[in-house]
């Protein structure tokens, strides 16, 4: 059964658009020389995080609960990784928390299906 389309709030639209722009610009970062110098597997790890974030924005755009869950998961994994390599970006954390605060109030209104 297809679930009825849920109207997307403007705030989530803005969050998603900003997120897609962030994805486009952070994608080339996967093969940044600085990331490669950290270790052979860091670009792969960062690449998985970028892909996960992208998929989570698609989920958010379609007002799906899995989108929020995936967004939270990728946020915590990314920040843990950055904390481990001692490269915490406070501006990034601020924006991510702002995004989370913007989307969480709508969580219950979102579709539970894929």
């Amino acid at each position: 059964m297809q679930s009825a389309a849920i109207k997307r709030p403007v705030l989530i639209t803005i969050v998603c658009i900003l997120g897609f722009i962030w994805i486009v610009f952070s994608f080339p970062g996967v093969f940044a020389p600085s990331l490669k110098k950290m270790g052979d597997w860091y670009p792969a790890l960062f690449g998985i995080l970028v892909a996960t974030s992208f998929i989570s924005y698609i989920g958010l755009w379609h007002m799906k609960q899995w989108g929020v869950r995936l967004f939270l998961l990728s946020f915590f994994v990314k920040e843990s990784l950055l904390f481990l390599i001692n490269d915490v970006n406070y501006v990034g954390i601020f924006f991510s928390i702002f995004f989370i605060c913007s989307i969480l109030p709508y969580y219950k209104r979102m579709d539970i299906n894929l």
């Binding site: 792969a44 892909a51 992208f54």
Partner: peptide
């Protein structure tokens, strides 16, 4: 190098997921 081979495959998989998901 090994790191460049890993990077090549990572980018390929990443592109496949990102461009095929929508």
């Amino acid at each position: 190098s090994k790191s460049n081979i890993i990077l090549g495959f990572t980018i390929s998989i990443l592109i496949g997921v990102v461009s095929g998901f929508v």
